[in-house]
Design a protein around this nucleic acid. Sequence first.
RNA 1: GCCAGGGUAGCUCAAUGGUGGAGCACAGCAUUCAUAGCGCUGCGGUUGUGGGUUCGAUCCCCACCCCUGGUACCA
Length: 485
Amino acid sequence: MGKFYLTSAIPYVNAKPHIGHALEFIQADTIVRFRKITGDNVFYLCGSDENALKNVQAAEQEGKPVQAFVDENAKLFEALAKKLNVEFDVFQKGSDPKHHASSQKLWQLCEKTGDIYKKTYKGLYCVGCEAFYTKSELNENGECFEHPGKKLEEVEEENYFFKLSKYQNDLIKIIESNEYEIVPEFRKNEILSFIKSGLQDFSISRSNTRAKNWGVPVPNDPTQRIYVWFDALNIYQSGIGFGSAEQNDIESYKKWWPADLHVIGKGIIRFHAIYWPAILLSAGLALPKKLFVHEYFTVNGQKMSKTLGNVIDPIEIVNKYGADALRYYCLAKISPFADGDFSEEKLKEAYNADLANGLGNLVSRVAKLCETAKFEQMISASKESVHLIHAEEYSQAFSEFRFNDATSVVWKKIALLDKFINDEKPWVLLKTNDQRLKSILAHCVDQIQEIAALLEPFLPETAKKIEEQFRGAKIVSQKPLFPRI
RNA sequence: GCCAGGGUAGCUCAAUGGUGGAGCACAGCAUUCAUAGCGCUGCGGUUGUGGGUUCGAUCCCCACCCCUGGUACCA
């Protein structure tokens, strides 16, 4: 069992988190918990992308200083994670001076290789997207699709460019051979065909004026700021000490890098699958091992958008149904490799059917049976560590990010135990004082404990409650875990 | 336009060249330890449309329609 360094995507903090962010946190966290159970030494990093121009604009709109604004919003993301029982080992902020220094170091390494050069760039620039567009990418009014009504600016300036084209063949080799593995397969193929169509160098700096003096300064050029993606990706490194001269940072970086897994949404795959490994190759640093790309949530079959007004606030959902209810929905009720639909109706359905009637009810009935029978269990040590090893199907599903399949293994066990109880009728044996009662209850308790252990990566709060309820020699019934709604 | 994937029961998804499966929802039966629950049974589909190959296609081929993603700096 080795070290396992996992990251989830660093969100823009120009707005509060929505349910898509919750999905990613939950997926990442369930992997973290699973790896821990298998004995890995796990480190989980998240952070906030604070150097984007979008943040400056959003702060201006609210009339707040940029730093105060990003600090405030970053806290909302941390609060969401906490609410979902997702624990980061580090939350690395992009505005942190330590991160700035680290990103400058990365820049200098690429520069030393000769992969950074100056070039005049002219193009149509959308301030909203903070991106250049070609005419073919714009709508009939010459505006970008994200920000209709917003005129694009003709911008010409001298920027620094990164020699991405140089790494085309290396990238193909690395991705095809799975040295850097992209999951799922169709995303890998998509990226490969994109690379094979020919890579162009991309701009990695902005003028100070355009960047509004926000972001990481380019080393030795006070007129330019580093383009946000170049530094944002480096949060994965700066958060574990890259570029610092302090001894504990040096050790930390050595210990954790490279990342074993980046968890991201499909919208930012190119940066992670192409730019990032190219930058690392240029800098002479180790490559991450794997990239897991999840899809998005739709809401009642529609895309989530501010204009539609159907953005779901995960905090509200958790307040109403509990963290484990949302975790369950995100993990069990959608495919990790396709857009999933969210609606409160569907959440309620899953809650009642699987959590209340399934898991919760089973725990209640076994607890009550034990209580009434005055059953006392033999306490044996280190029971739960044995359980996972026998759950081949479960582990296999986990290692392939098929969280829904992994949960269904557990729910099959639940159904099996329900049927077992129906068949054995312990409540009848209770009245006749039958000798078999004890062994039947022992089996039930053992199964409940196993279910709780398997549930830990998905529903940590619930797993803990069950584990505590069934830990002692005597078992008593308690309040329902998931009251029906 | 081009490339990739998909269109199967009300919903979410399996499956196979040979009389279409599961879970949820819904209904009935049985039961009472449990959160009106668990279990059992049932309801439910000319497998996107039109052709073709075949003794036989949902699965193979062709055309068309629809959906999703990609097509360079965008969660």
